[in-house]
């Protein structure tokens, strides 16, 4: 390796570095300079002195995370939902992208694609209102137009824990599907027709083509999304878990995640030291998990590791 490195003709790469410059400058300004903000989690802030001159206070700001006696279920919720979302994310949109790719009618295809993207375009606040429009016990479509006329009874969804793991998973899939499908579709579109023609000549059926051509092409993207998901396993989509169940306390045992807890605990305090401590803790765990999972993948299948 060393011998090769010496031969590298740096002059040849000068244009490359010039082309890299604007992008790198952006990352330095937008991401690397502000990273000193991480130290806020370890400081007792004093705005008179300024952030960088505020004294350090060790892990004091992290204590509130353990002050609550009920972190167990909160961590369990966060991790479990993420695992389910990860598993579904590796299957559902991939299946949709493959099936979609098989449709030949061009206009219908465009229509489908636009329509399934609709949910992705709505903000969680609006999604929350829409879910409420369906589920409300007093005014919701399901209760008022289906359950009441048929059975004479209503269900108070916002007071019943048992429905929510399914509702939240459904809403998450429903909202994200349109986009993740597009993500995998762009990979499928890059596969040259030559591969399919060659396979056809060898007598491969379409299912075999899916199995031996499409899936291998999709694999790097799937693995990349999995690793990214793992890095966020202690984070959660605040809007999904806070807005959609309308912050209903009764549902907390199945809906409260770390982000929701931190928000509820700090909403009256304006304490950026504590909120920064929470996100540093989440990032630290995520960071470790990414390194570990990337190492494992490197062992099993070196080509698929992301770095």
């Amino acid at each position: 390796m060393k011998a090769r490195k010496k031969k590298v003709n740096f002059k040849r790469f000068i244009p490359a570095y010039i082309m890299l410059l604007p992008g790198l400058a952006y990352f330095v300004i937008n991401n690397y300079i502000p990273m000193y903000g991480i130290t806020i989690a370890f400081r007792k802030l004093d705005f008179k002195k300024g952030i960088l001159r505020s004294p350090f206070c060790g892990f004091d700001n992290f204590k509130f995370l353990f002050a609550s006696g009920n972190m167990g279920p909160i961590i369990r919720n966060t991790v479990l939902y993420n695992l389910v979302f990860l598993a579904l994310g590796a299957i559902v949109p991939v299946a949709f992208a493959i099936l979609f790719n098989e449709i030949r009618a061009k206009r219908v295809k465009k229509l489908y694609q636009t329509v399934v993207l609709l949910p992705y375009l709505m903000s969680m606040v609006i999604v929350s209102s829409l879910v409420y429009n369906f589920l409300s016990a007093d005014m919701g479509f399901i209760n008022k137009s289906i359950l009441e006329p048929l059975t004479g009874q209503t269900v108070s969804f916002y007071q019943e824990k048992k429905f929510w793991p399914f509702i939240l998973t459904f809403v998450h899939e429903w909202k994200g599907l349109g986009f993740s499908m597009v993500l995998y579709l762009s990979t499928l579109l890059s596969i040259s027709d030559d591969f399919y023609e060659a396979a056809k000549i060898d007598g491969a059926t379409r299912l075999q083509q899916i199995r031996y051509i499409m899936l291998p092409f999709l694999r790097p993207t799937i693995i990349m999304m999995l690793i990214l998901g793992i890095s966020k396993i202690f984070n959660s989509d605040f809007g999904l878990f806070y807005q959609v169940p309308k912050n209903s306390g009764v549902l907390y045992p199945v809906t409260q995640t770390i982000d929701v807890y931190v928000y509820n605990a700090l909403m009256n305090q304006n304490n950026i030291m504590m909120s920064s401590a929470a996100s540093v803790a989440q990032a630290a765990i995520g960071f470790t998990l990414v390194i570990v999972s990337n190492l494992i993948i490197k062992k099993i299948s070196p080509d698929d590791s992301i770095f």
Binding site: N30, Y32, P34, M35, G37, I40, I51, V290
Partner: peptide
């Protein structure tokens, strides 16, 4: 090295206050 440095920005960030100050 550069690529990993860029990937790293997905995992950690300095938070809103330091971003605002920058």
């Amino acid at each position: 090295f550069i690529f990993i440095a860029i990937l790293l920005t997905m995992l950690i960030n300095g938070g809103q206050v330091s971003m605002y100050i920058t």
